[in-house]
């Protein structure tokens, strides 16, 4: 692991009226690691991610990317990061190739270089054949892969992904997982949120668990097991920390 962290959050807080969506969250993510961000629905995962990539301004606290304060030095921080949202909302009336060209210009990548990388990414994501079709006609998986290709075009040192495998077929999900591992091996910091605990268990070097806006655990799986009840799976640890479903009540409702 590198010495300097790619993401640092200090007392990161986002407040809507009286409600704390994210409350005093502190963690660090290093280059070369895959950091899994877990939590139940509405726990504050997406809000935290949006503050890291500069989509939301924190109410208080600090978030730094590559040493740059995302609020005070947004351009430097954004240059270092790539983002793939949970819903790949892209420009439906652009083709995949036009979309990548557009993103290349936004990140000021020389045209020839952008074209070369676009072709490479389109080939890698199996999108070359559909590259000149309008995104309108793409499936969810194709859109997700286009969004990931766009996020990787400028070769970011930090990749932030919100639920990257939701709605993907097994082949696409595997492709994305392989690519994320390769990126981490090349030194990129990968920060991803997921609901699928098996993915987090198998892919992530470290995991953070957020519940009701508060980060309740951070560490490797082994460290988390020490917090929980011995040799359980990540699912057991997660349910123990966040409060699992009350199976008895559900069974009662179902009669």
């Amino acid at each position: 692991m590198q010495a300097a962290p790619m993401i640092v959050t200090k007392a990161l807080t986002k407040q809507y009226g009286d409600k704390f969506a994210v409350n005093q969250v502190n963690f660090e993510v290093y280059g070369g690691e895959i950091f899994g961000f877990l939590g139940p629905n509405g726990a504050g995962k997406t809000t935290t991610i949006k503050m890291i990539v500069g989509l939301l301004r924190p109410s208080s606290g600090v978030v730094r990317v590559g040493g740059y304060d995302v609020v005070a030095q947004p351009l430097q921080a954004k240059t270092l990061s790539g983002y793939v949202p949970d819903q790949p909302n892209l420009y439906a009336k652009l083709s995949g190739r036009e979309m990548l060209r557009f993103v290349g210009d936004l990140y000021d990548i020389p045209r020839a270089e952008a074209e070369r990388r676009s072709d490479e990414l389109l080939r890698r994501f199996d999108l070359l054949e559909a590259a000149d079709n309008l995104i309108d006609s793409y499936s969810h998986g194709m859109r997700q892969k286009t969004a990931l290709a766009a996020a990787l075009l400028h070769q970011p040192r930090l990749l932030v992904l919100d639920e990257p495998t939701v709605g993907l077929d097994p082949k696409s999900a595997r492709l994305i997982k392989d690519i994320l591992r390769q990126l981490a091996d090349q030194g990129t910091a990968v920060f991803l949120s997921t609901h699928i605990l098996e993915i987090a268990e198998r892919m992530c070097d470290r995991v953070g668990i957020i519940n009701r806006g508060e980060l309740i655990a951070v560490g490797t799986l082994a460290q988390l097991r020490q917090l929980g009840a011995g040799e359980g799976s990540l699912e057991d640890i997660f349910l123990q920390l966040t409060g699992g479903p009350d199976a008895f009540d559900v069974a009662e409702v179902l009669g």
Partner: peptide
């Protein structure tokens, strides 16, 4: 820009 505005907002553009 609608719900695709995140593309512009996360890009390093003043």
């Amino acid at each position: 820009e609608g719900n695709a505005y995140w593309i512009l907002k996360t890009a390093p553009v003043r």
